[in-house]
C-alpha cells in the first residue's frame, strides 16, 4: 500500500515540476516571439538603404532603426528575468536565431554609421546584456559570428544597389571591409557545421563584390580619390 502512495507522490512532484517547466518554455517562447517581431521591424526599416534614394539618407535610416532598440532592450530584460541561473544553454535553441539576427542588425547599423566592424562589447552595450558567459545572459561566439556573416551578405547586396544609386565609391569601401572580414574568418578552425556552411557563402559574397569593383574599374568609374577618407 505504502508503495502505491510513494510512486504516486513521487510522480505528483514530477507533474508539478514538468508543468512549471512547460509554462516557463511557453513564457520564453512568447517573449522571444515578441523580440523577433521587433527585430523584423528593425530589419524592414533598414531595407530602405537598398532603395536608390535610401543610400543617401543612410544616417536618418540608422537613427530610425536605432530608436527601436529601446523596445529590444526592454523585451530582452523581460526575457532574461525568467531564465533560471545557469540554464542559458538549456533554452539556447529558443533564442539562437534571434541573437544572430540582433548581432546582424547592430553590426549592420554600426557599419553604415562608422564603416567599422562592431565588437562584442558594443553589441552587449547596445543590447544591455553581458559580454562573457560567466556573467550571465550573453551572446554565444558562434551566434556572434553567424550575425557577422549575415551582415556580409547584406553588404554584398548593398554594393550592387549602391551602384544603381550611382554611389560608386561605396562598393570600393565595402570590398575592403568584407575582404578583411574574410581574412578574419579564414583564421578560424571551423567544424563542418552551419557556421562553416555560412562561411562558404561569404566567399561567394567576396567574389561578388570583387566583380562589382571590376565592373567599375573597367569602365573608369572607380573614384580617383581613393578610399582614404573613410573613417578608420
Amino acid at each position: 500500500m505504502s508503495q502505491i502512495s510513494t510512486t504516486s507522490d513521487i510522480f505528483t512532484d514530477f507533474r508539478q515540476f514538468l508543468n512549471a517547466d512547460q509554462e516557463l518554455r511557453e513564457d520564453i517562447r512568447v517573449k522571444v516571439r515578441d523580440l523577433e517581431q521587433t527585430a523584423r521591424d528593425i530589419l524592414t526599416i533598414l531595407q530602405a538603404v537598398h532603395q536608390p534614394e535610401g543610400i543617401k539618407e543612410c544616417s536618418a535610416i540608422c537613427e530610425k532603426a536605432k530608436s527601436k532598440f529601446d523596445i529590444i532592450r526592454t523585451q530582452l530584460t523581460a526575457l532574461i528575468a525568467v531564465i533560471p541561473q545557469g540554464q542559458y544553454y538549456r533554452f539556447h535553441d529558443h533564442w539562437r536565431f534571434l541573437l544572430q539576427r540582433l548581432v546582424f542588425l547592430v553590426a549592420f547599423i554600426e557599419y553604415l554609421e562608422t564603416e567599422t566592424l562592431v565588437t562584442r562589447e558594443s553589441i552587449s552595450e547596445v543590447l544591455a546584456i553581458h559580454v562573457v558567459r560567466d556573467d550571465g545572459f550573453h551572446i554565444d561566439l558562434e551566434d556572434f559570428l553567424m550575425g557577422l556573416l549575415q551582415m556580409s551578405s547584406e553588404l554584398s547586396r548593398l554594393a550592387i544597389n549602391a551602384v544603381t544609386a550611382e554611389d560608386f565609391s561605396r562598393p570600393m569601401r565595402i570590398a575592403k571591409f568584407v575582404g578583411e572580414l574574410d581574412s578574419g574568418f579564414r583564421l578560424l578552425n571551423l567544424k563542418n557545421d552551419s557556421l562553416r556552411k555560412r562561411f562558404d557563402a561569404l566567399k561567394y559574397d567576396v567574389k561578388k563584390i570583387e566583380e562589382v569593383v571590376y565592373d567599375l574599374t573597367i569602365r573608369g568609374l572607380k573614384p580617383k580619390t581613393e578610399v582614404k577618407e573613410t573613417k578608420e
Partner: peptide, 17 residues
C-alpha cells in the same frame, strides 16, 4: 529580387559609358 537588382545594376553601369 537579387536577380532583378542585378539587372538594374547592369543597366546602370552599362549606361555609365
Amino acid at each position: 529580387l537579387k536577380k532583378v537588382e542585378t539587372a538594374c545594376y547592369t543597366l546602370q553601369i552599362r549606361g555609365s559609358e
